[in-house]
Design a protein around this nucleic acid. Structure first.
Lengths: 139, 139
DNA sequence: TAATACTGGATTAAAATAGTCCTGAATTGG
DNA sequence: CCAATTCAGGACTATTTTAATCCAGTATTA
């Protein structure tokens, strides 16, 4: 089972790419090439990030995307939530069609605790940190 | 995004059902009825649990399933792993077709930390505890 | 020996995920 | 102001995963 889906992974890689690009504005095409991501798919990912206010888009020649906020102000919980929804343990916690057994579910408290740990961890990792690690390492 | 899939949820409910059944041996049909689970699907789930050694099956009249171990000896990490594989953050950590970028991936350490927290949490919850909570509560 | 209940393979259905394509609109350098 | 560039967004297709079903077979026991 994978916690981080493909589009979220792409989003993270793209954001870190932006965070480490001195140019500031980078086109989807460039990111896709550098990060080995199908360009059409990445466009969709960038659109989501734009609508969510994580990046700013610039059209036209020399256009592209830039971070809307400083890297230390963006954490993984936000990115994950934008791309694949708030991480939930199971349907007991999914808003609308929540588990019909919910009222009777004594497991709820356990799930809730896990869910919070997960969220706290993700919220504690910022783009800044990821970018720093990249710079420090070989690749 | 859901961490616990349907079949895993069914497995947990079935196991807790067994843990709280004084009879010891309960048929799949009975569990399915009591837990509102499609019987054919539950059969598959029970088969997996049997092969994994979490429960023991008994054929024939008055047959069914019983726990192979004491409830306090079975934790959720085991159940989840049996049903949907070891929880992984992303493909960087999936054995065979692991991420081709793995060697260069500086995010790995972060993922690893999260993965361990997750596993530790799940490993810390036993069937016994879940069963106790059920008994304590209304339903 | 007949009813009960698990075994296991095959198959189908539905949903989620991943990826592609195409038309249009904004921007800008020449 | 025109042509190249680049994002916007809807529609569509493909693939994979998850969920569910069906059936023929075997073991057990009352």
């Amino acid at each position: 089972m994978e916690l981080i889906r493909r589009n979220t992974e792409y989003a993270i890689r793209a954001l870190v790419h932006l965070a480490t690009s001195p140019e500031g504005v980078v086109s989807a095409g460039e990111i896709a090439r550098a990060q080995d991501i199908p360009i059409d798919f990445l466009q969709k990912v960038m659109q989501k990030l734009t609508r969510a206010g994580l990046v700013v888009s610039h059209r036209g020649v020399q256009g592209g995307f830039s971070l809307a906020r400083a890297p230390q102000e963006v954490n993984l919980l936000e990115v994950v939530t934008v791309m694949q929804g708030k991480p939930a343990v199971n349907r007991c916690f999914l808003g609308k069609d929540s588990c019909p057994r919910a009222p009777a579910c004594r497991l709820k408290n356990n799930w809730l605790a896990l869910e919070q740990k997960l969220a706290a961890f993700l919220a504690g990792v910022t783009l800044k940190e990821l970018a720093n690690q990249l710079k420090a390492g070989a690749s």
